[in-house]
Write a protein that binds this DNA or RNA. Structure first.
Lengths: 278, 278
DNA sequence: AGTTAAATATCGCTC
DNA sequence: GAGCGATGTTTAACT
């Protein structure tokens, strides 16, 4: 039997089962009416209500209600679970250090307690990540721009690692920042930081190009790119190893202009003149 | 009875229980050996293993293993759960649109299926958030700098809303960005975007100050602030309504310099002269 | 529905 | 352990 369950146990019975389950390294679920107190990086308090508490053998604790994907309260892996009966109530406490954090769950009533032996298979491989996009572009660098030559990935700079670094057909350094989904202002700023770092390295401020490669871009991000003389190239995220670009016939990476037409298409040809803020 | 459980049911028995639980709007947990397939914004696949599936009445689906706080696979709220028996196996499918995403969980064996009526109490109030920090600083604006006068919170700009906007004792506009924890490069860039937006509004580029208020700052972020002539003030996050500043006697918000001494203390007095790269 | 930023974000990687 | 950036981030607020 890989799953044991007790229904409406006394708090003391629940405690016995809990301690056995801790011993076995089981995954534990407790359902009942409880209060929840959290104190650590922040602090919170939950009035009595029926909730599901999940305790993992790696120290994770999760308190789930009937809504939302995120637990209403939690404790990260590495925490230590402790159980006790105090004032006739089952108390489960999960504690960790650095930072010091405590989660306290006190059950008025325990409707159900289950313990299960979970086989930890975590051989999950996700496709469609930024790394997949990068590999696809390394296979076909012309998708970024004809003549683009990749030189390094994760190239270290003063401002952090650059996703993809290379040179264009004119030999100018090109900083490429990849995003697997539509980008906002933060991605534009990130690219700008990397470009500034390479400019400091190279010493010639005007010669370094920056290209943001993503499925699409918000208006505000497009404006930010334009302000800094940066460029945008639309590339769909890879579905199964391959990448697709927008159907625009002109796929050249062009300096983003404020009044371009479409988010998803490579922007129209426009040489930027006044770079720099405002 | 607010929780019903079946142990090692046949797939058909499990299906009946599932459909009843869907009907009642219960929170459902299923433990058993299963495979998991996901396809949507990305794609992933999980080999057979014992895992815990949680189905919420709001459409959330979670697949948990024995490790980690995050589910190994999931479906967000608003998805539609469907169950069926195919090829002698219980299949639970969760689907949503925009974006189109599908989660498929196929059970070889169902060890346990539980359904519980969870009372949805979401009257959770967290203290120690950025909003709490902001309110504390509105009460005592001198913590930012003596003579600082708050004028608006969430002040809208071309680049987005500014956490806290005001004027210093000289009447200069001050953009304040608040962070409840140690800040890195992205926070510095965020502040810089807001400052640039106000500079465009005001028309006088040199007159706008930017102050990043946080418990501490990384070296790289400090350098970024210095490059853009921005400032940093150390303020501990509020524990219970109040705020504390570092023990430094000189709490003036000073322009950040590259070679300052301490992360957590307000930086030493140093007028920035040469702003700009390095 | 789209955009923006916060979050007890979490997680993995590098140094 | 700190720092940095990706994440199928999720969530909430606002437009």
């Amino acid at each position: 039997m890989t799953a044991t369950t007790v229904h409406q146990p006394t708090h003391r019975e629940a405690l016995w089962e809990l301690e056995d389950a801790f011993e076995r390294g089981d995954l534990i679920t407790i359902f009942g009416r409880c209060t929840v107190e959290y104190d650590g990086r922040a602090a919170s308090s939950l009035d009595p209500g029926r909730r599901l508490l999940i305790l993992k053998p790696d120290g994770t604790a999760l308190v789930h209600t009937d809504e939302n994907q995120k637990p209403v309260n939690w404790q990260p892996p590495g925490s230590e679970h402790h159980a006790a009966v105090r004032d006739g109530r089952l108390r489960v406490r999960s504690v960790r250090s650095s930072p010091d954090e405590t989660l306290d769950v006190r059950f008025e009533t325990v409707e159900q307690l289950s313990a299960m032996a979970v086989s930890g298979r975590r051989d999950l491989s996700v496709t469609g990540s930024e790394a997949d996009l990068r590999n696809a572009l390394l296979d076909r660098p012309a998708l970024i721009e004809p003549g683009f030559e990749p030189l390094a990935t994760e190239r270290p700079t003063d401002a952090g690692p650059i996703d993809l670094f290379g040179r264009d057909s004119d030999g100018r350094p090109v900083v490429v920042e990849l995003k697997r989904r539509r980008v906002g202002p933060s991605a534009a700023s990130q690219l700008q930081r990397y470009v500034a770092a390479i400019e400091r390295e190279e010493g010639d401020a005007a010669a370094v190009r920056g290209i943001l490669v993503a499925p699409s871009v918000t208006d505000r991000a497009r404006r930010l790119l334009a302000e800094h003389g940066l460029e945008f190239v639309a590339v769909e995220p890879p579905s199964d190893g391959s990448v697709a670009v927008s159907t625009a016939t002109d796929n050249d990476a062009d300096v983003v202009d404020d009044d371009t037409d479409d988010d998803t298409a490579a922007s129209s040809t426009a040489e930027s003149a006044g770079e720099g803020s405002n």
